[in-house]
């Protein structure tokens, strides 16, 4: 076996291991969110005399955010599909679309947070508000990290193109991004929908 093919062989064997490891990491991340959900649910009525969810959340706003994120989850899947079929241009297009949608989501969320803060309903207001900002904010932090990851991936694609390693990384990214949307389903349902009724 030549040196190059030996190293290539190693990289291929590594993919299966890496993907399982990343999946297990993703599970631990889900447990992080589960803990934050537990805290939110327990403290949801501790408004210390201040505003509750029904006073603060806008149904149309939240629907917009949700559809944007759902679409970005879909496009991240398409990016992976293109990468698996070695279509570099399609991969980049769908990754960029995912990034733009994700950034829009983040901007909307930051707008909502700022509005709440300026109207006197920041995380310092009550246990309910602390839980809200932390749960939704942690999700937003994950989105931010995902966008940084996406940007770095585009850089890697620019330098090295689509090889075993880049396809593996795009696979891991799409797993990450899909899970973020799944967590958002529960934020949408438990925090916002159950919060306004």
């Amino acid at each position: 076996m030549t040196k190059i093919s030996m190293l290539q062989n190693e990289i291929q064997k590594e993919t299966e291991t890496s993907l399982l490891g990343f999946w297990i990491y993703m599970m631990t991340d889900c447990i992080v969110f589960a803990s934050l959900f537990a805290v939110f649910i327990v403290l949801r009525n501790n408004t210390a005399g201040g505003k509750a969810g029904s006073d603060l959340f806008s149904l149309s706003f939240i629907l917009t955010e949700t559809i944007i994120l759902l679409t970005s989850s879909f496009t991240s899947g398409l990016a992976l599909l293109a990468a698996q079929r070695s279509h570099l241009k399609q991969t980049v297009i769908w990754l960029c679309t995912t990034g733009l949608l994700g950034t829009s989501f983040l901007i909307l969320e930051l707008h909502e947070f700022t509005k709440l803060d300026h109207s006197g309903n920041s995380w310092r207001g009550s246990a309910f508000l602390s839980s809200y900002f932390t749960l939704v904010g942690t999700h937003g932090l994950h989105i931010t990290i995902g966008l940084l990851w996406l940007f770095a991936t585009l850089g890697y694609l620019y330098k090295k193109g689509l090889n075993e390693v880049s396809v593996r990384r795009i696979t891991m990214f799409s797993i990450f991004w899909h899970f973020l949307d799944i967590v958002w389903i529960f934020i949408f349902s438990v925090v916002y929908l159950l919060g306004v009724i």
Partner: peptide, 11 residues
Amino acid sequence: LLLTLFAWFIV
């Protein structure tokens, strides 16, 4: 999308 809209619509 359907499930999202359905839940949202009920609320």
